[in-house]
Write a protein that binds this DNA or RNA. Structure first.
Lengths: 152, 152
DNA sequence: GTGCTTGCAAATTCTTTGCAACTTT
DNA sequence: AAAGTTGCAAAGAATTTGCAAGCAC
């Protein structure tokens, strides 16, 4: 899908949901829809500002909120930015996280590395690492609908 | 591996690398090594403070730094915390990211969902979502050793 | 005209840095 | 004793909120 089509789609989604298409908002949408890489709010701001110098960073944050609620974007894991930490194991990097209580464990039984060679060639990129996390509701939380934290 | 063993391992790693084992540092290590879930710096601080009330949040940040350089921990993707955004597609959530220039694209050719049913049963958790990202060096960057950004 | 949206300023929250006092080795 | 480490205070970033003026519909 061309980015021009994406852009129209996004603008239509905004209107269909009762959001107005203002000049700054359209520019922010355009920047994100056409970007080849994940962007931080400040990066979006800097790019958008080149066309609309009076734009405010706050508007960027608020437009991101709306794009997210419309599911037009999602958040990308950049290792250096995430500040939630967990003990690592040498072997496995595959995590299973309960979104309700936070309980987390490493899991085995899903081999993804076997496909890396073929993907490297197909997409012309040398794969050097990966992040793989599954989210779900653990047994304990499924049985207790109320908020519950693990012992620590 | 029991968390007691983990704890001893970690303390030894600190000492082997010339870091001193101080009271606050040991407590922070203990909290992280024994935690069942990923923790933010503030959460670590709050738990550690229960045993060592005089501990400082700064020490938590600095100990995290050291644990990370010793590869005892790693950072976990929590969707609500990461502020780097990228357009989403309805179908695929699998990203290929060049760590040098940031260029990102969705990829196909790796079916992970097929294993979810078996994993759900094995780990007693209902899987509701996942995040899967591959990191690497794209062809363009591999040919140009200098820093280079994609057009946007 | 109505009501959503904007940008500013200020308030919060999060993270890093400088430094003198303190601990570990 | 030497060198690494601590916690405070302050600086610096990043994000959110209140609000009057402005704009889309």
């Amino acid at each position: 899908m061309s980015s021009e089509k994406t852009l129209n789609d996004w603008e239509r989604k905004f209107q269909d949901n009762g959001y107005r298409l203002t000049t700054p908002r359209r520019e922010i949408i355009r920047v994100v829809a056409e970007s080849l890489k994940p962007l931080s709010p400040m990066e979006i701001f800097d790019i958008a500002r080149q066309s609309i110098p009076t734009i405010g960073l706050v508007t960027v944050y608020r437009t991101i909120e709306k794009m997210e609620s419309l599911k037009l974007i999602h958040r990308v894991h950049h290792i250096n930015q995430c500040q939630t930490i967990f003990r690592s194991t040498q072997d496995h990097q595959h995590l299973l996280i309960c979104t309700k209580c936070g309980k987390t464990e490493y899991f085995e039984g899903l081999d993804v590395e076997h496909a890396f060679e073929a993907l490297s060639q197909k997409y012309e990129i040398e794969i050097t690492g990966h992040s793989f996390q599954l989210f779900g509701i653990c047994k304990t939380c499924a049985n207790k609908p109320d908020k519950e934290q693990p012992s620590q």
